[in-house]
Design a protein around this nucleic acid. Structure first.
Length: 1192
RNA sequence: GGGCCAAUAGCUCAAUUAGGUUGAGCGCCACUCUGAUAAGGUGGAGGCUCUCGGUUCAAAUCCGAGUUGGCCCA
């Protein structure tokens, strides 16, 4: 790692403090004997002040002025009125003294600020610095969290300090980490799924950088392929390939490039706008010659291994695009198609075979009929309209088939096994219409085939046309048949189609059905709705035809592929083991050729007049192309697209080779990303250093896509899987659980999410979702919640700043270690919680569960820091006197907040950076993203203390509950609370923190009933432990539990309980529960579901308590009236109190002193003018009036 | 039609590698607090843990069959 940037003397390095304390172990044991514990190292070493600080001073020069100016600008723009500031009395007082009458206008605020600073300089070096630089550490931050304002400022700041470049340089010497970006396809803008994907990538990259890695972060774009071609065709108003030819290949390719570039710009700016830090100046593009060369290289390696062949195969063809498409480009949707039952008349015997098909247009190419040799078939004698026939179908299907044929009646005449049908001959039903139909030896006979199901759809006899289907094709080849396919690449019958020549196949269906009917070959004809394959781009129904295509024969290396899978780790694991492996084992050879234009040209040259794979030349890179091509080309500047390379020929040994016209399947482009992204094969060095990828992360649709294509190419070319870790996330769904769909306009636009809540909030929400395999359901509520959490953090950071500023607290001069002896228990506790939070966050991150890490962090901020710690230390910070305790609180909260914003940085990079800047000023890095990931300190770890405070908090909570149960508001003191502790630990905690408990529960006294002791007036019942009762009582366990729950006994004694229940019990089976007397409210407290004791609140009223209670009621109302008048916190007033009830009036009078003090009243007496209100307090009418004191 | 994953409060999720009386946050309602205030506290309502079977003294959890949703394959 490189803490100091070479050549940058202005860099201040703050070494992470925690790391120095690894050797120290903090003293253990439950609360010792003193409230404040003194920390001492076990090894007995003492630590000198400041020894951990590298005293590198900041040298203000160069572009620093710019930063300063920017910060000044920012600071002044956000200054707010001090008058109503919630920063506490001390600050308000000071401010007022300086600017007695000028609060409000922006100019006067600026004045007041420097005046204020000047006053504070006498005893505060930090504040004196603030005169020079108002926006130094602890500069004021906005009163409310405004995501958009923060984000705009941080964008500016990043630009000003070159934050991204600086952060990368900062890690330049770190261990390399090779992340590969799965290239999004450049059509359309970023949707929520893409946004989630990039946010995840950004989050992990930032995390890895903070851990010290030099992370490869080159983004990529997938820019070739049919989707862009079809978009451009639409724009140009084209209908088919002939239009493209007419327009000109060169021009069309250029148009595609322009379109892709345009789309790329949109994506680039979106991703940058989301706060994603990747190398946007240098993305890899699949259309760049350097990248295309990587594909050529990979393909040529596969060819060297003998894995490239040209094959006559059955493929899915899009008749509009006139190209083969891969199986995984076929999309299935429900359509209505013909459903016909056709009779094939048997040649040498009575009767016909009945077959079923939804594609009548394939009947002309019928070559044989398939049966399941082990299946059961029947011959059925059927009658209709006086005519009689013998029909052969599967036994399981005959009733259904005959019903379809509307026969009057029928009977099974013959039962026979499938194998008995083998070899039966029949007549092609359209022999006359299609004269070129197959009629070779063995054609039109019955054969066995494993794709036949006697109980599936159809008749159990399968019409087989090897020219129109993969299975039929395979079987036809096995049988040694020539393949008959009378359909061209545009889905139109060729001359081999006879009568149907020139017709588009789907349109010929009708005529074929009519012809079959007129020949009496049609048993039944209807329609059916079923799912049928369509072109993924233009939605045209595909046709199965046989053409010549280029393949990578990955089935030859299937074992190697499956082995290589083992070298990758997937998160979640099942994605690899239950899903990817299945997909890979079933994957057929990869058809990589497309008869299109916008793609990487296949680098194969074949001898003129031949186009097979016998004597092909496969070119591996531009260098080789330049060497072998007949034409002169410059390898550095040659563009490798089709329009260029089609012209090139190669002549060797007297033979001239021409390029095959096809381009690659676009999936092949991204399959080479792991080396294409690092400039291989041109750049060997980086390849050696980085390859294979350490991590990739994409959504679950990529099992069939990029996860697979990379495995295929990596294995074919390199013999290895090109990635090690895979994080497979899910899809973004609508708030109601529907899939998002751009074409149906069902979506939540990330830009809208940003408009409503900002980038940090959106990222926080996205990243709070489980990234492993599960879909993310978008939720505006969830967004709102995240914004609230950030607001809480904002307020927490904002709270201590004014006090620190006033006291000139310098976290570098006064570190946590310096104030060790002044730390109070609550400080030690929050530091301990910080350690366990870091431990949890880091572990979750390393387990690829950043969502769990985030919730641990948020819980710490909201629950522990905001709701507890800040509450607990407020009064210490308000203290005007110098105090060790106050300084200790400063040091503590500073450490906590600084680490919290650091942990938050990967999630909410904007707000984390701004808060970090405020906390560290000029002494930190330019950006939080350069920080090291906070380490867990053993020294500050204290699991026992964490557990203890958890107990105290539980007691407090239960006490508040009991209070409410007793009907006594917190404002009214109670005489005492009684804590019945179940164990020694609870008793210790209470004993030591009686004052704290008394204070927080507003009790005059705290009594402790230790474990084993009993508090009088309590009854007991029992609670059953079902894990004990179950085995002991078997099926009566439930019944015994019920009687236990209902039992009431005076002593928590097993014998008494046995008496009450009438069963023999063991001590482990039950725990006793106290039943509170009526005049006392009790609430059980516990942790993690385990009861640890009970708090009782004695709500008995005494005159003294009533006196204080009523007085405080008056105080609160006066305070509210002060607020009505918008009085300054310090402003003195006069108060008039008129109470309708004499007794209450007397009680209140006893506490006049308290009232005067609390409401800052000089006098209690008559008020003439002023603010007057009537109140009802506990049923008593009270009239109050206040006015500002005449001369204060 | 097949494979994988998911299904627990209105919403988002927990429930500790192998069963033991279902929990949290957000939202909602009521009360409360009023020097973080577009906050804080307490309580409440809200669940045949998707359905049906099975194993077991005992199933949200294990097994089988379905239903719904998502992805993938045909």
């Amino acid at each position: 790692m490189a803490p100091l940037e070479p050549g940058r003397d202005r860099q201040v390095y703050v070494r992470p403090l925690v790391s120095l304390f690894h050797a120290r172990t903090r003293s253990r044991g439950a609360f010792g004997g003193r409230l404040r514990r003194r920390r001492r190292a076990v090894d007995g070493r003492r630590y000198r002040r400041g020894v951990h600080q590298l005293p590198v001073r900041h040298d203000r020069r160069g572009d620093d002025g710019r930063r300063l100016a920017r910060r000044l600008r920012r600071n002044h723009a956000v200054r707010r009125d001090h008058g109503g500031s919630p920063e506490g009395p001390r600050l308000a007082r000071l401010t007022r003294r300086i600017t007695p009458s000028s609060v409000g206008s922006r100019a006067s605020i600026a004045d007041s600020r420097s005046a204020f600073s000047a006053v504070c300089t006498t005893d505060s070096p930090l504040v004196s610095e603030a005169v020079v630089s108002p926006m130094s550490r602890f500069g004021e931050i906005e009163e409310g969290y405004d995501p958009h304002a923060v984000e705009q400022r941080v964008f500016d700041h990043w630009e000003d300090v070159d934050a991204y470049e600086r952060t990368k340089r900062h890690r330049a010497e770190g261990e390399t980490y090779f992340f590969v970006d799965g290239p999004p396809y450049t059509s359309g803008s970023a949707h929520m799924g893409t946004t989630w994907n990039k946010s995840l990538k950004d989050c992990y990259i930032r995390f890895l950088r903070m851990q010290g890695y030099d992370v490869t972060d080159r983004p990529g774009y997938d820019m070739h392929g049919l989707p862009i071609e079809t978009r451009v065709e639409e724009q140009l108003g084209f209908e088919n390939k002939k239009d493209i030819e007419a327009y000109g290949e060169d021009a069309f390719i250029e148009a595609c490039k322009e379109y892709a570039d345009e789309q790329l710009e949109g994506l680039q700016s979106d991703f940058q706008d989301f706060g994603v830090w990747m190398d946007w100046d240098d993305p890899y593009k699949t259309v760049d010659p350097e990248y295309m060369e990587a594909a050529w290289w990979g393909f040529s390696r596969a060819a060297e291994r003998g894995l490239v062949e040209k094959g006559h195969r059955s493929i899915s063809q899009c008749p509009r695009c006139e190209t083969a498409i891969a199986n995984n480009e076929v999309e299935y949707e429900d359509v209505s198609d013909p459903s016909v039952y056709v009779k094939f008349d048997l040649a040498d015997r009575e009767g016909s075979l009945v077959v079923w098909t939804t594609t009548p247009w394939t009947i002309p190419a019928n070559t044989f009929t398939a049966v399941d040799p082990d299946g059961e078939y029947v011959g059925v004698r059927a009658r209709k309209e006086g005519e009689e026939e013998l029909l052969y179908v599967a036994e399981a299907k005959y009733e259904e088939v005959l019903r379809e044929g509307r026969y009057d009646d029928f009977e099974v005449e013959e039962e026979l096994a499938g194998e008995e049908l083998l070899g039966w001959g029949y007549d092609h039903p359209l022999a006359a219409e299609v004269p070129d139909h197959t009629d070779h030896d063995g054609a039109h006979e019955v054969y066995a085939a494993d794709y036949v199901e006697t109980e599936g759809d159809g008749t159990g006899l399968v019409h087989s046309a090897p020219g129109h289907g993969e299975e039929d094709f395979e079987r036809g080849r096995e049988l040694g048949f020539p393949i008959f396919c009378p359909v061209g690449s545009d889905g139109v019958y060729t001359d081999a189609g006879g009568k149907y020549e020139g017709q588009f196949v789907k349109e010929a269906d009708e005529e074929i059905i009519a012809d079959l009917e007129s020949k009496g070959a049609m048993l039944a004809s209807g329609t059916i709705t079923h799912s049928y394959g369509h072109c993924w781009r233009c939605d045209t129904g595909i046709v199965q035809i046989v053409t010549d295509q280029w393949f990578i024969t990955i089935t030859d290396i299937k074992d190697e592929l499956l082995e290589n899978i083992e070298d990758s780790q997937w998160h979640p694991e099942w994605a690899r083991d239950s899903r990817f492996r299945d997909f890979v084992s079933e994957a057929p050879d990869w058809n990589v050729s497309r008869q299109r234009y916008w793609g990487i040209p296949i680098p194969i040259w074949t001898p003129e007049g031949r186009d097979d794979d016998e004597e092909m030349i496969v070119v591996g890179d531009r260098e080789e192309l330049a060497e072998r091509a007949d034409q002169a080309i410059d390898p550095d500047s040659v563009d490798l697209h089709k329009d260029t390379v089609d012209e090139l020929t190669i002549t060797e040994d007297g033979t001239t080779y021409t390029r095959v016209p096809d381009v690659f399947d676009v999936w092949l482009d991204s399959s080479v990303a792991s080396w294409g992204t690092i400039g291989f094969p041109a750049d060997q060095e980086r390849f050696e250093e980085l390859w294979p990828a350490d991590l990739i992360m994409e959504a679950h649709d990529q099992t069939r896509g990029w996860f697979w294509s990379q495995l295929g190419m990596g294995t074919a070319a390199m013999g290895e899987i090109p990635y090690e870790q895979v994080l497979m996330h899910g899809f973004a769904q609508m708030p109601d659980g529907r899939a998002m769909s751009k074409s149906k306009d069902i979506l939540v636009d990330p830009h809208e999410a940003i408009d409503r809540h900002g980038r940090d909030v959106m990222r926080l929400f996205l990243l709070s979702n489980n990234p492993q395999g599960e879909d993310m359901r978008f939720s505006w509520d969830g967004m709102e919640t995240m914004e609230n959490h950030l607001r809480t953090l904002w307020n927490v950071v904002r709270f201590p700043l004014p006090y620190m500023r006033l006291d000139g607290f310098d976290p570098d001069e006064t570190t946590l270690e310096d104030v060790d002896s002044d730390l109070e228990v609550v400080d030690e506790w929050v530091l301990a919680r910080l350690q366990s939070t870091k431990r949890e966050v880091t572990a979750a991150f390393e387990d690829y569960r950043q969502d769990r890490a985030l919730s641990a962090l948020i819980e710490f901020v909201v629950e522990d820091v905001s709701r507890y710690y800040v509450q607990a230390v407020r009064e210490r910070m308000w203290d005007e006197e110098e105090s060790g305790s106050k300084t200790a609180a400063y040091a503590t909260i500073h450490r906590v907040l600084r680490e919290v914003v650091t942990l938050l940085a990967p999630y909410a990079p904007f707000v984390a950076d701004e808060l970090y800047g405020t906390l560290t000023g000029e002494t930190g890095y330019e950006t939080v993203h350069m920080e090291d990931w906070p380490e867990v300190s053993d020294y500050w770890t204290d699991d026992e203390l964490e557990a203890d405070v958890a107990l105290l908090r539980a007691i407090e909570e239960a006490g508040a509950n009991a209070r409410q149960g007793a009907g006594r508001k917190l404002r009214w003191p109670v005489t005492r609370i009684v804590v019945a502790a179940d164990d020694e630990r609870v008793a210790e905690a209470v004993a030591r923190h009686e004052d704290l408990l008394a204070d927080r529960l507003n009790a005059r006294a705290v009594e402790l009933v230790g474990p084993g002791e009993r508090w009088g007036e309590l009854a007991y019942s029992a609670e059953a432990d079902m894990s004990e009762l179950g085995p002991a009582f078997g099926d009566r366990a439930g019944e015994v539990m019920t009687s236990l729950n209902e039992a009431r006994i005076e002593e928590p004694d097993l014998a008494a309980l046995e008496g009450a229940v009438g069963e023999e019990l063991e001590p482990e089976m039950v725990s006793f529960v106290t039943e509170t007397p009526e005049d006392v409210a009790g609430t059980a407290f516990g942790i993690d579901g385990d009861d640890r004791g009970v708090v009782y609140v004695d709500a008995d009223l005494t005159e003294d308590i009533e006196s204080e209670g009523y007085a405080r009621e008056v105080v609160r109302r006066v305070q509210e009236m002060r607020k009505d008048l918008d009085l300054d916190v310090e402003e003195r007033i006069a108060v008039e109190i008129a109470i309708a009830d004499d007794r209450v009036a007397d009680l209140v009078r006893r506490r006049e002193e308290l009232i005067r003090e609390e409401v800052r009243a000089d006098a209690i007496g008559d008020v003439d003018e002023g603010h007057r209100m009537e109140w009802e307090i506990e049923g008593v009418d009270v009239e109050l009036a206040i006015e500002p004191a005449p001369s204060s």
